[in-house]
């Protein structure tokens, strides 16, 4: 298994956290992982992205020019990265923030999820990234429940000391996964 992901969205939508979450869970599952942020003048409202590789074999280049998976939270991200996605790749798009999702003429599996609306239904408007994560996990599988649970602990207990946020984020992941498994 080797998945090269680009995760992109507005600053503040939690794309960096989503990428770190995946890398951390992958590491706990015994895989090789790497995570590279776009760094620089990004800020809330600007576009930010990160590149994550999860692989069973050693990772040569951690720099991703052609992703296998694209997770996009907003329109500019889709426009920017869609042309780079590999054949038979996966695109998970946040349809709450992307009005127009183009027809794809290539062999790419596109899943659109109204991640923001779902997060708001769950009374967790900031958890749209976790809905996207759940959706990705539903499609790709590959990460164990145990690792995902440990990553939740790491993200919300170790890092920000907010264990109260775990149930709602876990619910967001579950909703995303359900949608993906239901064939969306």
């Amino acid at each position: 298994m080797k998945d090269r992901l680009i995760i992109s969205g507005f600053g503040g939508q939690g794309v960096m956290l989503l990428g770190q979450f995946l890398a951390y869970a992958g590491m706990l599952d015994g895989r090789r992982v790497s995570w590279i942020p776009s760094y620089g003048p990004e800020m809330r409202g600007g576009t930010a992205y990160c590149s994550v590789t999860i692989s069973d074999t050693s990772i040569a280049s951690p720099v991703i020019s052609r992703p296998d998976t694209l997770i996009v939270m907003n329109s500019p991200s889709l426009d920017r990265f869609l042309p780079a996605v590999r054949r038979y790749g996966i695109v998970v798009a946040n349809s709450s923030m992307i009005e127009h999702i183009p027809e794809l003429d290539r062999d790419i599996h596109l899943v659109s999820v109204p991640a923001q609306s779902i997060a708001e239904e769950l009374k967790a408007p900031k958890a749209s990234n976790m809905v996207m994560l759940g959706c990705y996990l539903g499609i790709r599988g590959g990460l164990s429940e145990k690792a995902v649970e440990a990553a939740l602990q790491k993200a919300f207990v170790d890092a920000v000391k907010r264990p109260d946020l775990i149930p709602i984020n876990r619910a967001a992941i579950e909703r995303g996964r359900e949608l993906a498994l239901a064939g969306n």
């Binding site: 992982v33 995570w35 590279i36």
Partner: peptide, 10 residues
């Protein structure tokens, strides 16, 4: 380089 500095790996 900036990439090595910013990158996360185990």
């Amino acid at each position: 380089d900036g990439n090595l500095g910013q990158m996360m790996e185990p």
